[in-house]
C-alpha cells in the first residue's frame, strides 16, 4: 500500500529560505528521504513554500473565488508530504515517527487511493 505522510508544523520554525537554520532542516529531510529511498519505499513527496505564498481557490455554489493565504489558518501549517510504500499502517506509522520535526507538530498518515481497483 502507499501512504502519504502529511506534515503539519509551525512554519516559523523553518525561518527564511536558504538561511543556515533552514539549510540544516533541509539536510535533515534529505537524510530522511535518503533513508526512505535506500529502503526502496520512497514514492514521492514535496516540501511546500510558506503559507504566505499560498493562494486558495474557493468554490461555493458553482462560483469560484480567490483568497490570499492557505485553506485553513491555524497554529500549525501544512508544510509538505512524503509518499511511501508500506505493507500496512503500522509500518507507515513507524516511518511517520522517524520523520524529522522541528518542534511540536503532527504527521497525518493517509492511505493513497490505489488507481488499479
Amino acid at each position: 500500500m502507499q501512504y502519504a505522510l502529511v506534515i503539519y508544523e509551525d512554519e516559523a520554525l523553518y525561518g527564511e529560505e536558504n538561511t543556515p537554520a533552514w539549510r540544516e532542516i533541509f539536510a535533515q529531510h534529505e537524510a530522511f528521504a535518503g533513508e526512505l529511498a535506500q529502503k526502496g519505499v520512497l514514492r514521492g513527496g514535496a516540501g511546500l513554500k510558506p503559507t504566505a505564498t499560498a493562494t486558495t481557490v474557493r468554490r461555493a455554489a458553482g462560483q469560484c473565488s480567490l483568497h490570499d493565504g492557505p485553506y485553513a489558518e491555524s497554529k500549525e501549517q501544512l508544510g509538505g508530504f512524503y509518499v511511501i510504500e508500506a505493507p500496512d499502517l503500522d509500518a507507515a506509522l513507524a516511518w511517520a515517527r522517524k520523520l524529522p520535526m522541528q518542534g511540536d507538530g503532527s504527521v497525518e498518515v493517509r492511505p493513497i487511493i490505489d488507481g488499479t481497483t
Partner: peptide, 8 residues
C-alpha cells in the same frame, strides 16, 4: 480495511 491495519 482502508487504512491497512495489519491483522497481526
Amino acid at each position: 480495511a482502508q487504512a491497512g491495519i495489519a491483522f497481526e
